[in-house]
């Protein structure tokens, strides 16, 4: 079976932050936001705090050494516009808004994107289900 490329990855700085946040908040999840203010940023919550449903797409689970995988979700309507891009969760100094758990630490998760290569696009499940 052909290898299916991951849709989402994370930087080592983001992994370090997730480990620290895991200690304070328990298992974690991401839901990618859209819209104004802090929109277009990934929101990090205690796992299950945000109820995903049939309108959401599970892009994958982020492997973070030392803690359980962190699921990454996005609304299906937004995914239609994002699905041709690979996402990397990074972290930058800042404050954000919304209820994302890292804001009090003086940092903010941020998405960096790249286009999937033709080979990756061909190998990907077109629904992106994970």
């Amino acid at each position: 079976m052909e290898h299916v490329p991951a849709r989402v990855a994370l930087t080592s700085e983001a992994a370090d932050l997730l480990r620290r946040l895991r200690a304070a908040h328990g298992p974690l999840m991401f839901h990618q936001s859209g819209g104004c203010c802090d929109g277009s940023s990934p929101m990090c919550y205690p796992d299950g705090e945000f109820r995903t449903g049939g309108s959401d797409v599970h892009l994958g689970d982020l492997d973070v050494e030392g803690i359980e995988p962190v699921a990454f979700w996005m609304s299906g309507s937004q995914f239609e516009y994002w699905k041709h891009t690979h996402l990397t969760v990074d972290v930058v100094p800042g404050r954000g808004s919304g209820f994302s758990v890292e804001a009090p630490e003086g940092v903010r998760f941020l998405i960096r994107s790249r286009l999937f290569t033709d080979a990756e696009s061909a190998a990907l499940n077109p629904t992106g289900g994970g």
Partner: peptide, 9 residues
């Protein structure tokens, strides 16, 4: 007033 994920939450 803000963004969609927090709005849903």
């Amino acid at each position: 007033t803000g963004e969609t994920t927090t709005g849903r939450l």
